[in-house]
């Protein structure tokens, strides 16, 4: 066991735990946001840099601070480590920078994007972003492609988190898609003429933090906040069969895996469950889903009272933050000798 202090809160965790997971054990506001890290996918994380934190004391043995911000999703804790997240103004500034970088080439087509309402980038931008953009150039664009008959790839929205690549590597027998090209024209793509076609590929849709990979059987059917999540299960030979159905009226519009409060799926599901069973009679209904993750999807239907109050509280907090937040830099930041 090792002791770690994050933003003044101390917890004892097993050796080898990452800072992010230790923060999740503490919970609350101090949990750094994560766009590319996914607990269930090995070697994920470290790319998006939204979860960076400051280590102000390395460990009990070697108390020197770490010279640069570290990605909390990949840095394991040492005994006696002291971490600053929301208490460090530099980290908040750096994180705002990362959010800005992620958004400069994002099309911001949320009004027509199927992911809107359950999009990690929306939440991130809402919590850490700024009101206006300073980017004044043409945004990067790609053609939409069909990868297989069930999944649509809309590369323009992608933030290159590599999660779908890891899903293909770790869940399916052979990866047929990956990242091609480099720099800001790097894109997710399949090998020439290949379709992503295997029974677990649908999980790529669930892990995608943005609307780059969408379910073709659900595209443009409904905004997610008009659908009601219901937990259900069926007997399935390939996967656990534990899913979440999204109802609009009497009709189940889509099937997804169940996600926890950090937006990560609890158990992978197969394509048969996801795409081919959309009748209520196919499923044993367990009851309404409980959604911890506070977003518009939890503001509807079953838990209106609490969730709506939480949302209102959030909006008030945001408005307070945004007041006077007119993209002004810190005083002296412009002085070249003041680095």
């Amino acid at each position: 066991m090792a002791k770690v202090t994050i933003d003044g809160k101390t917890i004892e965790v097993p050796e080898g735990t990452t800072i992010l997971n230790a923060a999740r054990m503490i919970g609350g506001e101090i949990v750094p946001p994560a766009m590319c890290y996914y607990t269930k996918l090995e070697t994920s994380g470290g790319y998006c840099r939204t979860c960076i934190v400051k280590v102000s004391k390395g460990s009990e043995k070697d108390p020197r601070p770490m010279p640069k911000p570290v990605p909390s999703c990949r840095q394991t804790i040492m005994d006696g480590m002291v971490v600053e997240n929301i208490t460090s103004p530099e980290i908040l500034e750096a994180r705002a920078g990362v959010v800005e970088f992620l958004l400069i080439n994002h099309p911001l087509d949320c009004p027509i994007c199927d992911q809107a309402g359950e999009c990690s980038l929306q939440d991130l931008g809402y919590e850490h972003g700024k009101m206006k953009t300073r980017y004044e150039f043409k945004r990067r664009e790609f053609e939409k492609i069909d990868i297989g008959d069930k999944i649509k790839l809309h590369m323009t929205r992608c933030i290159l988190c590599y999660r779908c690549v890891k899903v293909a590597e770790q869940l399916t027998p052979g990866r047929v898609h990956g990242v091609v090209n480099r720099g800001d024209v790097a894109e997710i793509s399949t090998y020439i003429q290949h379709a992503v076609d295997n029974e677990m590929s649908g999980n790529m849709i669930d892990v995608c933090p943005v609307g780059a990979l969408t379910d073709k059987t659900f595209r443009f059917k409904s905004r997610v906040w008009f659908t009601k999540p219901v937990d259900a299960h069926r007997k399935c030979d390939t996967c656990s069969g534990k899913v979440r159905l999204w109802y609009k009226g009497e009709e189940a519009l889509r099937v997804t895996a169940r996600k926890d409060k950090y937006g990560e799926v609890e158990e992978w599901i197969c394509n048969e469950c996801r795409f081919d069973h959309k009748k209520t009679s196919d499923w044993t209904i367990e009851g309404p889903s409980h959604i911890d993750h506070h977003s518009v999807i939890s503001a509807n239907h079953y838990e209106t009272g609490n969730a709506l109050a939480a949302l209102k509280h959030d909006i008030a907090k945001q408005q307070k933050q945004l007041e006077g937040n007119d993209m002004k830099l810190k005083e002296g930041a412009m002085n070249p000798n003041n680095q």
């Binding site: 920078g97 080439n105 150039f137």
Partner: peptide
């Protein structure tokens, strides 16, 4: 900008932005 690998966001997006 041309040589950034595109793995992490600040470098992928920032180098192109600075060039523009």
């Amino acid at each position: 900008h041309h040589e950034s690998c595109g793995q992490c966001s600040p470098c992928r997006e920032g180098t192109g932005w600075m060039e523009k």
